[in-house]
Computed example of a mutant assay.
Amino acid sequence: MKLEVIASDEGSPSNPTAEPVFEVLDVESVPYAATPTLRFHLHVSDPAGRAVHAIALSTQIQIQPARRTYDRETQERLVELFGAPERWAATTHPFQWARIEALVPGFTGATSFAVEVPCTYDLEVASAKYFHGLRDGTVPLTFHFSGMILYRGTQDHLQVVPVPWSCHAQWAMPIAAWRAAMDEQYPGGGWVRLAPATLDRLAARKAARGHRSFDDTVHALLDERGEGAP
């Protein structure tokens, strides 16, 4: 099999203006995964109907916070991420959530495929902090695609063409999907990363006060500081 590399982003020589079209169709929580994981279902089509041997695809997913509205309570929960609401016009810039590599199997015309995105409940991570601050609605996402397309040519040739940088898709992900992934791993609770020294101090306070759980200890500490329940 012979390999021919096309170095430009203009598609194969047979149709230099056509480029693949990507769409996001749906998302679901992956059950029984080792870590919280979301599976995005995507669709790709080749307008020229060419035979694609495979696509070595890189998908960069960005969160676009300025593309939705927020009520006052949500703004208060996100103040650590974006600052005071009056500054949000300047601070709600897009930021990266994930970068995923995938191999799309061969097809002619169009096909569907999936990419899996591991998630974290570490509230030191901007994406988790943003997701945790949303109680309902959707998360505005932009999927940016790059990589290499292997077209089947004549006489057992393969043509390798870069995925054009202009290939992208916008989609609104229901925040309920992220919460379902979290509930799969952390039912009835959340996750906060603490330094070992902090955890030791918290455990000592729990033992000294005879609290049944760390929840009781944290509530007691908040009550001492006058922090009421939300």
Rank of each mutant, 00 (worst) to 15 (best):
H93M: 10
A51E: 12
I61G: 03
P16W: 04
F113K: 07
R135Q: 11
Y151L: 03
D71G: 07
T69P: 00
V5G: 07
A7F: 14
L134Q: 00
T138F: 12
I100F: 01
H93C: 07
D156S: 11
S213R: 05
A176T: 12
E80F: 14
D216K: 05
A110W: 09
P31C: 04
L158A: 12
A66R: 11
R50V: 07
R77T: 02
G49M: 08
G226S: 06
D200V: 13
A66I: 00
V161D: 00
N15E: 10
G188P: 04
A197F: 03
E19R: 15
H41W: 03
A197L: 09
S14P: 02
E19W: 05
H132N: 12
G210K: 09
V79N: 05
T35R: 05
E19C: 09
S45A: 12
W97Y: 00
A98N: 05
A195N: 13
Q155R: 13
Q96L: 13
F143C: 01
Y70I: 01
M1P: 14
A90C: 03
P187Q: 02
V160Q: 09
E28R: 06
S112Q: 15
L150C: 11
E124D: 15
G210P: 04
Q60I: 12
G153Y: 08
A203D: 13
P105Q: 05
W171K: 03
H157G: 06
A229Y: 08
E76S: 13
T111Y: 03
M148G: 10
H132W: 11
A180V: 03
T198W: 07
S112G: 15
V115L: 14
L57H: 05
Q96P: 10
H144P: 03
G188T: 03
H157V: 09
L81V: 15
A128K: 01
V161H: 02
L57I: 07
D183H: 08
M182Y: 03
A128H: 05
Y32I: 03
S213F: 01
V79L: 04
F113E: 05
A18D: 13
G137H: 05
A229E: 12
V125L: 13
R225K: 15
H168Q: 08
A54E: 13
E76W: 07
T108S: 15
Y186H: 09
R201A: 12
T217Q: 06
L222R: 06
Y130D: 04
D215R: 15
H219W: 08
G83W: 00
R72W: 11
L42N: 00
